[in-house]
Design a protein around this nucleic acid. Structure first.
Lengths: 209, 209
DNA sequence: CTTCCACTTGAATGATCGGTCAATTGTCCT
DNA sequence: AGGACAATTGACCGATCATTCAAGTGGAAG
């Protein structure tokens, strides 16, 4: 182990990152106080500022840490071993399941963590805007390669993969935001069809009833 | 005039609504204080609470008032005299122009006012969640009737107009949120093509380069 | 003129905010 | 054993928050 010293438990920083992400996603950056995060993480305020210079820095670190934890799942969902169009379906199913679990747990639809934080702070905290932008772009890379694969296999119409991937991500983020606003998971039933339609998959083109 | 008495200027409430909407859209609900709103509106705090029982109530009233002012523009954009697909194009052009003007004025892309407020407060302030939901649904009604008209004229593929309209709105809201996060208006160049593709317009199907 | 009341004023409230700090604890290294 | 230092503690700070309120102001109605 390279951690030179460990005062006590050693996972204090981890707990702050975890709790911070959960609370901010669920509520909002402004609605969550540093005290609240510390209380839920069973950490004293001094420790918070020992690890993070500011609340905004915690948010950035918490989101980055969340990505780090969840990236393996995305790697699997977008595995090159999976047929391209099935990757989209699995991605949408993953999103829906995640939302369902959270909505059940907290009693309300949470929506997209990047979207919610970005919407709130993009014009206020440049650090946070940049981080959310970065995480969005990382996700779009998965979509882009899936689009390119699907095109090479003739599964969808040709076009610029970057544009199509951005279209798909924007739509998914919009659906999640819409679901949060309506507080209704049912909206997400149309997520996969909409995404496949946007990708240019011929079979799923209709707005099914 | 039926206003029984008028202390002084008579448009105090109007100014609070106007300033409140502008600041909240631009920044966020949490980042804007009642003091800030009062200062910019040149109104004393006591007057604020004479007109509105709380900050949340001001936000709700400000958003409703904004809709009231902007509804005529939507009525015109979605006029039955306009060919259905052209309505979508005009709507997208209207959104882009609005965003361009605001971005120029404030130095940052503002995104969708309903989306941003809803994302921030949907799980915290039920009053505000309901109002944003209501405004979103009102807008979707325009899209829905345009979709229905386009279908009857054989311009797009058949399908449930409500589903298609919701798809289109979610996507537009997602684009605006994405543009706010990236702080880049260029993203909106693809808004109209994406919307027309989602509507099912045959010509605009490709993700143009 | 006088009564009335919507409206305005500006100070004050207590709570909570993000952030600071000096003192202490515990552990590793020598 | 003892120095060094990361980690922890908990009190503390001034600023700002949403909200309250009592005292004024001025026009309309009787």
């Amino acid at each position: 182990m390279n951690h030179k010293t460990m005062g006590r438990s050693g996972d204090t920083k981890e707990r702050l990152l975890q709790v911070g992400f959960e609370l901010i996603w669920n509520q909002s950056y402004g609605a969550v106080s540093v005290d609240q995060i510390c209380e839920r993480a069973r950490v004293h305020k001094g420790s918070f500022y020992h690890y993070f210079p500011s609340k905004a820095d915690l948010a950035v670190a918490a989101y980055e840490e969340h990505w780090r934890e969840k990236q393996p799942e995305l790697d699997e969902i977008f595995s090159a071993q999976t047929p391209p169009l099935e990757r989209f379906e699995r991605w949408c199913a993953h999103i829906r399941e995640r939302q369902r679990i959270r909505a059940e747990k907290y009693g309300g639809v949470c929506g997209c963590p990047y979207g919610s934080l970005g919407a709130e702070l993009a014009t206020q905290e440049e650090k946070i805007r940049r981080k959310t932008q970065e995480l969005v772009e990382r996700t779009i890379r998965y979509l882009e390669s899936a689009v390119a694969d699907a095109q090479r296999q003739g599964l969808i119409e040709p076009g610029d993969p970057a544009t199509t991937a951005t279209r798909i991500y924007s739509t998914a983020m919009g659906y999640l935001l819409h679901a949060r606003i309506r507080n209704d998971l049912a909206l997400l039933e149309d997520l996969a069809p909409a995404v496949l339609h946007l990708a240019g998959a011929p079979a799923a083109a209709g707005a099914g009833g």
